[in-house]
């Protein structure tokens, strides 16, 4: 009711005039403005106070340390965009990591071991997907249940023991990939970039990706316009399972071991990164670009805490506060600063 004059301007069929680069960036990253501001401020502070911070060694360390989070967060972005949530993602990753460890232990080559691990991830994802979309069980219930199930599977696979994979023949390839580099650029950074580009293209330029946004925005409208809502929802969970397996490969590669237990705060970090990046928990809004920024922001915070020798016990507190502030910023952006009353839902 209150934007009448803005609408009076007719749109011409011609494409909109080019806008200045800065405002284009601002428009493209709109909801992630908080994350960007946070990264810039932290970077300036750390660069001025910690000489180590801007060294190439620290930066590659930062990338390596956050690759697992990034891969998981890319998967979580899909599911949040579709209006769901996957609480089993970290547990699934632990279980697929154990599958990878067992495969290597059995003397398998790297490629078959990787293939079986990814397949396991797809199966885990398929289970979540079928239960949420076709059996119509609420996603929180399903993924809470499967999180527990996958965690158990991870323990059962090798009787709760960590598998030290360093000496197995199949591991060399993975190890080289995760820790190696070309022209001074770590392979893992290239891997991250490729993965980000692929997911961004899928979400923005494919029928499937557009379907995800439609389903997350309004599932009934999507259904009435011919989008296969159940299939889309199911595939989203399959993708999450796949990224969980990918993340486990990176994790095993970095640690040279497959552990049946996992850091319980990782799930929170992953989801927080996606939300800080401006993806709406209500679905249909956000994207991969924001998620990268969210992961980077939390990674820089973590790096800063390490460099300044602050106890790692603070990490959860800082992540939590940042999450709430970032989402509050998003809400404030949407509803207007300090304005009471709603301008429509």
């Amino acid at each position: 009711m209150n934007q009448s004059t803005a609408e009076r301007t007719d749109v011409k069929a011609a494409p909109p005039a080019r806008r200045p680069v800065l405002s284009r960036i601002a428009a493209a990253t709109g909801p992630a403005t908080g994350a960007i501001a946070g990264i810039v401020i932290l970077t300036v502070i750390l660069a001025l106070t910690q000489p180590v911070f801007l060294t190439w060694g620290n930066i590659t360390n930062l990338v390596g340390a956050n690759s697992v989070t990034l891969v998981l967060a890319l998967g979580a972005t899909f599911v949040l965009l579709a209006g769901g949530l996957d609480l089993s993602i970290v547990a699934a990753s632990a279980a697929t990591g154990m599958v990878f460890g067992l495969m290597l232990q059995s003397g398998a080559d790297a490629l078959p071991a990787i293939a079986v691990t990814l397949l396991a991830g797809l199966v885990f994802g398929l289970l979540n997907g079928v239960l949420t979309s076709y059996a119509r069980i609420p996603f929180l219930v399903v993924t809470l249940g499967t999180a527990s199930l996958f965690a158990s599977i991870a323990l059962l696979l090798n009787d709760g023991k960590t598998i030290n994979v360093f000496d197995f023949p199949g591991f060399a390839f993975v190890n080289d990939f995760v820790l190696g580099q070309a022209f001074g650029i770590p392979f893992i950074l290239m891997f991250d970039i490729v993965l980000v580009v692929i997911t961004a293209v899928v979400l923005r330029y494919t029928k499937f990706g557009r379907g995800i946004y439609a389903v997350g925005s309004n599932a009934e409208a999507a259904r009435l316009n011919g989008i296969n809502v159940r299939l889309t929802t199911m595939l989203v969970y399959v993708i999450v399972g796949f990224t969980a397996a990918l993340a486990s490969l990176v994790q095993v590669g970095r640690l040279a071991g497959a552990a049946p237990t996992f850091d319980a705060t990782l799930l929170l970090t992953v989801i927080a990164a996606v939300l800080i990046g401006g993806t709406a928990y209500t679905g249909g809004e956000g994207g991969v670009g924001g998620t990268v920024l969210g992961v980077l922001f939390l990674g820089v915070i973590q790096n800063g805490l390490t460099l300044t020798s602050v106890s790692s016990f603070w990490r959860g507190a800082v992540n939590g506060i940042v999450l709430i502030l970032a989402v509050a910023l998003g809400v404030a952006r949407q509803y207007g600063w300090l304005r009471f009353g709603r301008k429509g839902r």
Partner: peptide, 25 residues
């Protein structure tokens, strides 16, 4: 409109084109 036709968080363009995903891909 709101419950069955619109994608509230999306743009005018996407609200129009998502109905054609079968033909514009």
């Amino acid at each position: 409109r709101r419950r069955e036709a619109l994608l509230p968080p999306r743009s005018v363009a996407e609200n129009i084109s998502f109905a054609w995903l079968g033909t514009i891909t």
